[in-house]
Amino acid sequence: MDVNAFQTLVARITGEIAGAPLDSSLEAHLNAEHGPGSDTYEALAAACQLGAKEGWLCNREGGGIRYGRALKASDATHGFSVDVVDMEDIAGPHHAHPNGEIDLIMPLTPGARFDNYPAGWCVYAPGSAHRPTVAEGRALVLYLLPNGAIDFAAVAA
């Protein structure tokens, strides 16, 4: 596995969901078709774990969180950027999602949760904001951001 193979793997998902509204229907679809136990989930989880171990994913650290933008938004990823974070019992910085955010939660500790979601997918609508939090252990989280849009300057409500 390398960055090019990772991009090909991610593009299978982004090609399927490109243009879909970021809402609860997309979240349900992703969990039904690509949730834990599926070939897609298992391949992405293995790739993220290997990439983090080899250092081409999560290659930066700040505030106790390992993170990194693996892929910029491009035609190859159907307009999505791809970030992966490694978090353990920590809340990250508050940010907003101008175009929404799609997250794949991959617990490394059984039972670890991201924003109270277990293993699987969660979808944040355009204009949403949060302080991403992993509790009950450690997890990798893959973020798909339409057009790479994220706003860390947004003021917490």
Rank of each mutant, 00 (worst) to 15 (best):
A46N: 13
S25T: 10
L44K: 05
G148L: 06
V155D: 10
G62I: 03
A157S: 11
H29K: 14
L9K: 03
R131I: 00
P107L: 11
L71K: 01
P107I: 14
D2P: 01
G63V: 05
H29A: 01
A18I: 13
L22G: 08
E27D: 01
E54H: 12
H97T: 05
V82W: 04
R131A: 12
A154E: 13
P126D: 13
W121R: 06
R66Q: 15
R12M: 05
A18C: 11
E27F: 00
H94F: 07
M106T: 10
L142K: 05
G111L: 03
D75G: 08
R60E: 07
S74F: 01
A139D: 10
C48S: 15
L30N: 01
S24C: 05
I150G: 00
Q7E: 07
E54C: 04
V85M: 04
L26Y: 00
Y67H: 12
G68R: 06
R138K: 08
A32F: 03
D75S: 07
L44S: 08
D83Y: 08
K72C: 04
E136A: 07
E16Q: 15
L22D: 13
W121E: 05
A47C: 06
G137D: 02
E33Q: 15
E61V: 11
A5R: 08
I13T: 15
P118L: 05
N59G: 08
M87R: 02
P98V: 06
N4S: 12
G37Q: 06
P146H: 03
Y41A: 08
G35D: 13
L30F: 01
T77W: 12
G37R: 03
D23N: 15
L30E: 01
Y117N: 15
A91T: 13
W56N: 04
G35W: 00
Y143N: 06
V85L: 05
H130I: 07
D83H: 11
V155Q: 14
A153Y: 07
E16D: 11
Y143I: 00
I105G: 09
D89G: 02
S25E: 13
E136D: 14
R138Q: 08
P107D: 11
L104R: 05
D75Q: 10
L50H: 14
N99D: 12
V84D: 03
R138V: 02
D103P: 06
R66S: 15
G51N: 03
A70L: 06
Y67F: 15
T133M: 02
D75W: 00
E33C: 13
A52R: 15
G68D: 12
V3D: 12
N116S: 14
N4Q: 14
I90W: 04
S81M: 03
P132R: 01
G137T: 03
G55A: 11
F6V: 08
H34F: 06
G111I: 00
A153W: 08
A125T: 15
A157E: 10
I65L: 11
